[in-house]
Design a protein around this nucleic acid. Sequence first.
DNA 1: CTGAAAGCGCTTACAG
DNA 2: CTGAAAGCGCTTACAG
Lengths: 353, 353
Amino acid sequence: MSKGGEGASEPVTLRDVAAAAGVSLATASKALNGQGRMTAETRKRVREVAARLGFRPNALAQSLLRRRSFTVGLLTNDTYGRFSLPLMAGITDALVDKGVSVFLCNVEDDPRLAQLHVNAMLDKRVDGIIATGKRIDRRLPVDLSNLGIPAVYAFTEPDPGAAAFVSDDEAGARLATEHFLGLGRRRIAHITGPASFSVVNLRAKACHDVQAQAGLSPFPPLMGAWSEAWGHEAVGRLFAGRGAKPDAIFCGNDMIARGVIDALRERGLSVPEDVGVIGFDNWEIIASQSRPPLTSIDMNLAALGRQAGLALLAQVDGRPVEPGVRKLPCRLVVRESCGSPRHDGETPSTRGG
Amino acid sequence: MSKGGEGASEPVTLRDVAAAAGVSLATASKALNGQGRMTAETRKRVREVAARLGFRPNALAQSLLRRRSFTVGLLTNDTYGRFSLPLMAGITDALVDKGVSVFLCNVEDDPRLAQLHVNAMLDKRVDGIIATGKRIDRRLPVDLSNLGIPAVYAFTEPDPGAAAFVSDDEAGARLATEHFLGLGRRRIAHITGPASFSVVNLRAKACHDVQAQAGLSPFPPLMGAWSEAWGHEAVGRLFAGRGAKPDAIFCGNDMIARGVIDALRERGLSVPEDVGVIGFDNWEIIASQSRPPLTSIDMNLAALGRQAGLALLAQVDGRPVEPGVRKLPCRLVVRESCGSPRHDGETPSTRGG
DNA sequence: CTGAAAGCGCTTACAG
DNA sequence: CTGAAAGCGCTTACAG
C-alpha cells in the first residue's frame, strides 16, 4: 500500500509487471482486468506485484485498442465565468468518477480559434464534445453536428437534432412571483435586462402570467441593461409617476437587484418591509453581501453540468438520448430581502411546464 | 479544400491514405511529416489524397510512439472563478497554438478528489501539470513534486524547488500609491482584506513605504473582510474621529472599493473630487459599473497564465526553468475614480523589486 | 527514391 | 489454467 511515488523517470509497464510476477503479458493483463480464468492465487500475485511497482496502465495504449479515449472536449466562449465555472465543475465532477477527463477549450467568439480547438479534439479522439456558452440563445462559432462524435449542449443554443440542457427560466420566474404572492404581496414589478435576450422575454411573460392568473393586473416589465445602474434608474421610473407603487420587485439578475435595493434605500423605503426584492442567478458573492442579503433564483448550473456530462456519456455508450432542449428547474434561495413567508403551509413550487 | 466532414463513422487512417495514394504506409507517413526523401511529386500526391480524405492523424497513436501526449493537466480549487478563468484562458491560449490541450481538473479542497484527478492525469500520460488556486499563499491539497513529470504553479503556493508565477502585489500597491501621489493627493488610506492573507500585508507595507519615502506619515491600514460591507464600515471609522481625513483610499479589492464609494457618497463626499479611490483586481463588471467607474489594479492574470503555460512547455522540452517564485507586474487601469493626472510628465511605474 | 519490419503499451480471440 | 500471436494507428531506423 505504499502510495509514495518513485520519482519515476520511466513509468513501469505491463511487461515489467509480468516479468516480476513470472507470468506472460497476456496473463498479467487479464489478472489486472479481472478477465479470463486463472487461479485466484495467480491473480492475487500479479495484482500485488503491480501495486508494489506502482503500475498504472497507459491510457493512451488502452484507448488505441478500445477505440475510446475516455476524454471529452468542453467548448466555451465564456471568459467571464459567472455561468461557466459552476457548469464546468458540475461536468468534471460527474465525469471524473467514470474515468473520463475533460479538455478545456476556450474558443472566444472566434471561428478560427474554435476550429483550431475542435481539430485538436478530433485529433485527440475525444469521445464526445460538450458545448457551453455565456448565453442560452446564442450558438458557438462552430458547427458540431457532423463531427462523427456525439455532442451535447449546456447553457447554449444547440444545433438542430442535438440534446441541450438549459435552465427553465420561466419556471424560475414563476417561482419568484409565486413567492411574492405567498407573502401577501400584490403589486409586483419586474426590472430586467435587454429585450434582445430571449430569457428576458420568457421570464417577463411568466411573471406576468402568474399575476394575471391570480387576478392581478401586473406592471409592465422594465427592460434595460444587466447593470446595477439600470436597477437604480428603473426604481426612479417606477416611483416617479403618481400611479400605484410596487410592494415587490423581481429583478433579472443580482446586479440589478443591488441597484434596486440601493435606490429604494435612497428613497427612504426599506427592504423587505416596504418592498420585497428577488434577484436572479444567486451569484453568491453579490447576493450574500447585499444589505439585506438577497433572495435569489439559482439556475442550478452545477446540476445542469452534471446532467449534460452524463447525457454525453450515455450517447458515447450508445444509449440513446432524446434530442431537443431539456429545461431544468431553478431553485429559490431565500435570504432576507423578501421578509418571512406566511406560515400557511403553502410553499412556492414549480408548476406546469 | 472541402472542409465538410463526412459524418465519419470510422475515421480514415494512414493506411487508407497510403492505399489511395498507391504508396506504402511508411512513405505516406514521411510524406505528411516532411520526413525522409522522396520526389516532390510523391509528397504532393500523398498530401492531396490525405486532404481529400479528411485524414487526421490519430494523436493517441502518435503519443504512444513519441512518449509525449501533447496534453497537460490543469488543477484548480477555485470554483468561484474571479481569478481562475482569465488564468485558464491565458494557459489554453498559449498552449493551443503549440498543439497542446489542457485537461481541466476541479479538485476543490479535497485531497481524495485531487488524488483522483492526478491519477487520471498520470494514466493519460500528460506531459506536465499546472497547479492553480484561488489564493497565492495556499497550496493545493496534493503533492506534485514526485510525479515524474514537470509541474508549474500559477497563482498558488508552489512546492519547494518548483517554478511559480504570481502577481507582484507589492508593485501593484506601489503603482496605486504612486498614482495618488502623482495626482497631488497626500493623505492616502488603505482599506483591505483580512490580515491572514499574505498579500494583504505585502500590499499594506508597500503602500506604507511609498508614502514614507515621500515624506508622508501614512494612515494605519484598515484590515477587515473582502466585502462591500467592510468597505462601507471602514469609511465610517476613517471619518469618525477628529483627526486628518484622507483624500485618497486604496482598496484591497473592487468590492471593498464599491462599499467605500457608497459610503463616501452617503457622507456627502464626492469621488473623485473630494476623495480618490483605487480598487484591486480590475474586476471588469464591478469596476466599470461602479459610479464613477473605478480605477483599479489589474493582476494581468491572462498573461500570467500564458507564461506559466510556456514555462511548463519549456520544461517538457527539457529546457531548464529556474525554480522559485516569479512575480509578474500588475497594471493600473485608469477609469474615473481618481480624477485626471497632473500632466507633469511623471507617470507611475513599477520600481525596484 | 521507396518499402518491409520492428515497436510504442496494451488487449483479446485463439490455441494448447 | 496459461501463453503466443495479432493488432490498435502510427513512426523510424534500416535495407534495398
